[in-house]
């Protein structure tokens, strides 16, 4: 890493005193360089840079259903947004969804990762099992869980009923819908969380544990004095990307509840989707998109800041 950084910082100089032949070669190299990055530059400009600025532009306008500008409205879209009870509700729901899914998801994955890093036989099999959800897309997961949550023949109510507990309307009861989708999301993201934490755990030098054990530390002390501090950069990274992913959640809501019942699962991206692609209010939709961007920007910035500190600290 250090080495590569150095190579990258190598200052570019087109030395005026260099021989004409060398200068010609350097100029040729420039052209080759631009040629190599050209496909990426064109594609990223067309599908990332341009749309990004277009989003900002659109957020100040009202549009017709095919996206043509109808009127300049300035910051009216933003003002409307923050007085729109539905949008404020979707902010609240997204916040709750993040709180429900992120800490639980990381905690379970950490537990599984610690349990499978022991020297006991057969751990590879368990590691594979716990990585399995990473193969699941939001589409297939949603369909499977929709059936698991089925109020009459789903497995959840079957278990509840056999314990003598009455059935729950997982996805159609406004008190339960968000929790149910959170459950499914925790499962769906478990594979990624597990893989990242497992890699982090495996990166901790074994001899640290050995010498601590010689000093008489027990398992719990080892966990809190060695594992957690050394894993903290990974945990922090995972926390940030999990929050970002939770803020972007959409597919499971679209398939399983369609934002309902009674708007109880109308999360951020779902409301963006509704506004832009169901109501065809592209301006208002863009306003939402930009607010999402700012939130994610702040989180990423936070990640870099704290990440830097960690590096200096070590």
């Amino acid at each position: 890493m250090q080495n590569s950084e150095k190579a990258f910082e190598r200052p570019f100089v087109l030395n005026k005193a260099a021989s004409p032949a060398k200068r010609k070669r350097l100029r040729k190299e420039q052209i080759i360089g631009y040629g190599f990055i050209m496909p990426s530059v064109i594609l990223l400009s067309a599908f990332v840079f341009f749309p990004f600025f277009q989003s900002i532009y659109l957020s100040f306008f009202m549009t017709d259903p095919i996206g043509n500008i109808v009127a300049f409205v300035g910051i009216q879209n933003y003002m409307d947004l923050f007085t729109d009870p539905e949008f404020l509700n979707s902010l609240k729901i997204t916040f709750l969804f993040t709180i429900y899914t992120v800490p639980t998801g990381i905690f379970i994955a950490l537990l599984l990762a610690v349990l499978t890093t022991s020297k006991a036989k057969g751990m590879k099999v368990f590691q594979f099992a716990f990585s399995l959800p990473i193969a699941m897309s939001v589409g297939t997961s949603s369909v499977i869980w929709l059936l698991l949550f089925n109020p009459t023949s789903g497995v959840f109510n079957y278990i509840l009923n056999s314990l003598g507990i009455p059935s729950v309307h997982w996805l159609t009861d406004p008190n339960w819908a968000l929790t149910s989708i959170a459950l499914m999301t925790i499962w769906m993201t478990l594979g990624l969380n597990f893989i990242i934490l497992l890699a982090g755990l495996q990166g901790i030098p074994k001899d640290l544990y050995e010498s601590a054990k010689i000093d008489g530390a027990n398992q719990i002390q080892l966990f809190f004095k060695i594992t957690i501090p050394l894993l903290s950069p990974t945990l922090f990274f995972l926390l940030i990307i999990s929050v970002i992913n939770a803020l972007q959640a959409f597919g499971q809501f679209n398939v399983m509840t369609n934002g309902g019942p009674m708007n109880s699962t109308n999360v951020f991206v779902f409301s963006l989707y509704q506004e832009a692609f169901v109501n065809f209010q592209f301006g208002l939709g863009s306003t939402r998109a930009l607010i999402l961007f700012v939130i994610i920007l702040v989180l990423t910035w936070l990640q870099f800041k704290v990440g830097e500190k960690k590096v200096h600290y070590q």
Partner: peptide, 13 residues
């Protein structure tokens, strides 16, 4: 830092 949801509307248009 720009999630795809942020640019999805202009891309769609």
């Amino acid at each position: 830092m720009v999630p795809s949801e942020v640019t999805v509307i202009p891309r769609y248009l």
